[in-house]
Nucleic acid binder design. Structure first.
Lengths: 402, 402
DNA sequence: CTAATTTGTAAACGGCCATGACGAAATAGT
DNA sequence: ACTATTTCGTCATGGCCGTTTACAAATTAG
């Protein structure tokens, strides 16, 4: 018997729960979880003042969360001020875990993250997946998942769900890979090919990278654009703390924004798309390099070595990116732009031309552009954390399991 | 004593109410209002099954709404089927009213809309406002508002709030006009210049036009782009039934999306912005016409008369619009594009080139482009309805007043 | 060592929706 | 015409949930 799928991508604490007393209760449980999770160890009284309920109400909520193993009582706080010291509460390190997986072009990776946000187990397999059929790849991925789950269970965790990051477009059902050019996959239903023991969510790697930035970034705002690139160039649009997905789930296709409308033909049918100027293939071609393994690393090394041809190619890519981003900034007015994925490693050579292009084309103060500190880890962490967030968003839904 | 400002632009039924029984009650009151408002006359039992509460609970909610004058009992329904007929409920036509106002380049307009969505009073003053100082314009507008309010009050309505549509950028405080090029206004705080008797909201005319389309359009989806143009070209981005405003409130600036990055200089500092190809001035220049009054009407007449120069200018504007929209569609993946405002009147000559450009640049089925049936009335109606929606979204907040 | 302060819990209270029963008002069947 | 059936609106009851109030416990300030 497979577990029921968790609510498709909840966007906030306890959204869409019915407006009845039970729904209220569930939302308040979620608020307690969020407060304890975000603000570190907290006493019941502190939680109460954070979320605006009374100490008595919080007491019963916390009791329930402790009974279900989602919260732990750490013991009395060290008293620094007058009054009886509170008893510190923290989210449990032995409860549910989020299993994140990433299907990259050159690797597979899986990790388990506990409610505290710590990575408690991981497994990686290197080797290209380009052009391989979905079935063998997913069999391999399943093997890694089982290993990570076993490791996590040895530490007292149980898997609350699996989230898979894919380098391609994912339908709004959060299961189907509609198109993944780098893998040459089309309309692959991952739900049918992965273990059904726990709830599954599939999403674009740019989206999960953006969520990781939102949840784990140092001072990432709640409105930003997260740009990431492998062969394609994708963006995660985070608006008011949640992802903008679009009707079909295809939002954020920055790579096919027209940069020079009469430019070279693009595989998408259009002409002069950003991808023709800043995509991996285009940059390699402009730099006079061959395609091969670890293409991004190669570019970075050559650029660092002072290869002027490579540097010029990257400068021009940055300029094109700047043009496309100008359009996006005019449309979305975000608070920041974050470069993630492969772009993070090439940032030193992309940023100057990108930023000067933005400055040139923006009237007021230009939108700040920063580089993700998560780098290539973003999508994997975002995937795992998305499961953790789902638990925080509705702890009652998880209480029965485990 | 002025009324408290209503919650800044609520986005959905009863968002952000505290999770306590009172908040639950308020949300349920809102759900009853929405059901009755949207689904026409409804019996208590029908409301109950619509919103998922029991008949008993709905009874008490309806009693409260009747007491506060927001809902009226129309009397027994004509029984078509077996069983005791219900008593039809409808939102009141004599309760609160939304006052909408529009500051256009060539006119001022004010109207009052009741909870049923009917326009119950209106006032218009023609004459250009281009280059006039804010104070006299707003004095004039205040006069119109007072007249409309007086008319509405004669019909048993009372003003629940004033919403003003402006042809320019509005800050997130929903009071300040940051920049309105057509009026030559900068950083004007409308809150200080308009009567403080009722809650005030100010927004971009494109945004209010988009909301009107969302609320009043025949079968407008919950995800669409509403493009409108006077001198500037603005877009309202409706995502999942609510407006995307951006951090500073400047989202939707389609007019400054780069179309030809090396094109002619634009006032914004960039080059080749959409506005340089599809803006009113650019089109008039391309058509070899002078600037003057009723410029859009002139273009439409000439085009209808078969003026080939004008038609070519509009075709090229449509093409440029298509390029910019391609970018927007790739980023946002909406369900539809709606042309409103001045563009609606020129649609016959813009649409062919626009749609062929979209078709050329889109891989899958192209995003459908339609024309607003509200036309130039959109922003005014959207403004008035935004106040009505605020009442529907939290009827309890309004209960005390009036 | 006492007063003050803060924490956590327990009992009483009040608000709110669900449940179940009932009268009212219509139709359907005999 | 009369009864059975169905549906509507309401009332009384009960359970759930957060609040209020009170109190014991644990710490600091003086």
């Amino acid at each position: 018997m497979s577990a029921p799928p968790h609510e498709a991508r909840p966007t906030g604490p306890g959204r869409a729960l019915p407006d009845t007393q039970q729904g209220m209760r569930r939302r308040n449980l979620a608020r307690v979880m969020h407060a304890v999770s975000a603000e570190g160890p907290l006493s019941r009284a502190a939680v109460a003042s954070h979320i605006g309920l009374t100490r008595a109400a919080v007491s019963t909520l916390v009791d329930e969360l402790i009974r279900t193993g989602l919260i732990e009582e750490l013991g009395p706080e060290r008293p620094g001020r007058v009054g009886r010291p509170g008893s510190a509460l923290a989210v449990s390190g032995r409860g549910p875990a989020g299993i994140g997986a990433e299907i990259g072009v050159d690797h597979l990776a899986v990790c388990a993250v506990d409610l505290r946000g710590e990575v408690r187990a991981r497994a990686v397999r290197h080797g290209t997946n380009r052009g391989r059929a979905p079935e063998p790849v997913l069999r391999e991925l399943t093997g890694l998942v089982r290993r990570v789950v076993a490791d996590a269970e040895r530490e007292g965790l149980w898997p609350a769900g699996l989230a898979v990051a894919v380098p391609g477009l994912v339908g709004r059902d959060a299961r189907t890979v509609v198109r993944a050019p780098n893998l040459d996959w089309h309309d692959v239903d991952l739900g049918a090919l992965l273990p059904g023991e726990f709830p599954l969510t599939v999403d674009n790697e740019a989206n999960f990278g953006g969520l990781a930035e939102l949840w784990l970034g140092a001072d990432t705002p709640r409105d930003f654009l997260h740009v990431s690139a492998e062969i394609g160039i994708g963006a995660a649009l985070v608006v008011d703390g949640s992802l903008l997905r679009g009707t079909r789930g295809f939002a954020g296709e920055l790579g096919h924004v027209p940069v020079h409308p009469d430019g070279p033909d693009c595989g998408c049918g259009s002409r002069g798309c950003l991808e023709q100027y800043a995509g991996e293939e285009a940059v390699l071609r402009a730099a006079g390099l061959e395609l091969g393994e670890d293409r991004v690393g190669l570019l970075a090394r050559r650029a660092a070595d002072g290869d002027e041809e490579v540097r010029r190619a990257l400068r021009e890519a940055g300029t094109a990116l700047g043009v496309a981003l100008t359009g996006a900034l005019n449309l979305l007015d975000p608070e920041a732009v974050v470069l993630g994925g492969a772009l993070a490693g090439l940032a030193p050579w992309l940023l100057p031309s990108l930023e000067s292009e933005l400055a040139r084309r923006t009237a007021g103060p230009p939108c700040p552009v920063s580089v993700s500190r998560l780098g290539p880890e973003g999508p994997l962490l975002g995937a795992a954390h998305s499961v953790v967030r789902a638990v925080l968003d509705d702890p009652a839904a998880v209480a029965g399991r485990g």
